[in-house]
């Protein structure tokens, strides 16, 4: 079956130490058949890419604080510009941490409450479906996605949390909180609704043989929003 030409042009950022860059690339390029390119951290422009994926991994080793160095990389200046102009940005896992460090999303991600790395599939509720990331999850209450992180414990001040709730910026919540996240937050977006950060990995759940397909609709929603 031929797909109609998609207007989405995905750019997957590669920092030294990114390691889910290939997970995202594989899912977008080979499973969702989208125009997808890697963007090297030393580049200063995202070029013609209109959806930016900030992938998981350990950017620059993350020996300091997750994402603390990545936010200063060359490419991130242009990602921030893109986001401020309303462009779509998705940060997954380390990408979420980087977007918080870069100020594109509020709050921070600290060490998991039990101080251990955790990798398993977790059930999530979709809290908001009126946005470009989850529109196609209509009729789905709960999905299951893998998490794999040591610093996924979302933290922000009371006012920020209230604001996140008021503006319906909380997109995903854990049903069974694996890391101590405040208000069971697994993923949030900015007020404008064009920047998403989430700890679970939708790009690792796009084909039946590997952890199911619950992540696919997230990317399909984004693709639809651009077409």
């Amino acid at each position: 079956m031929r797909r109609k030409l998609s207007k989405a042009k995905f750019g997957v950022i590669v920092f030294p130490g990114s390691n889910c860059d290939h997970d995202a690339y594989h899912s977008l390029k080979h499973l969702l058949c989208q125009d997808t390119k890697f963007l090297w951290h030393k580049e200063s422009s995202i070029g013609d890419r209109n959806v930016i994926i900030v992938p998981g991994g350990f950017s620059y080793g993350d020996y300091l604080r997750c994402g603390a160095i990545a936010r200063f990389s060359n490419i991130m200046k242009d990602v921030v510009r893109h986001a401020n102009e309303g462009g779509t940005v998705i940060g997954i896992c380390n990408g979420f941490q980087i977007l918080c460090e870069a100020g594109l999303l509020p709050g921070a991600l600290i060490r998991n409450i039990n101080l251990k790395f955790v990798c398993k599939n977790v059930p999530l509720t979709i809290e908001n479906k009126k946005n470009i990331f989850t529109a196609l999850y209509n009729g789905t209450k709960e999905i299951s996605l893998p998490v794999a992180h040591a610093e996924g414990n979302y933290l922000c001040d009371e006012d920020t949390l209230k604001s996140l709730e008021d503006y319906e910026q909380i997109v995903f919540r854990y049903k069974d909180n694996p890391n101590g996240s405040m208000a069971n937050i697994a993923g949030i977006m900015n007020k404008k609704g064009n920047v998403l950060g989430m700890m679970p990995h939708p790009e690792r759940a796009c084909e039946e043989i590997v952890r199911g397909t619950d992540g696919r609709k997230l990317f399909e929603s984004v693709i639809q929003s651009l077409n």
Binding site: K116, F117, R211
Partner: peptide, 8 residues
């Protein structure tokens, strides 16, 4: 405690 899934 191990990432058992990276690289899908």
């Amino acid at each position: 405690q191990y990432d058992t899934q990276v690289r899908t």
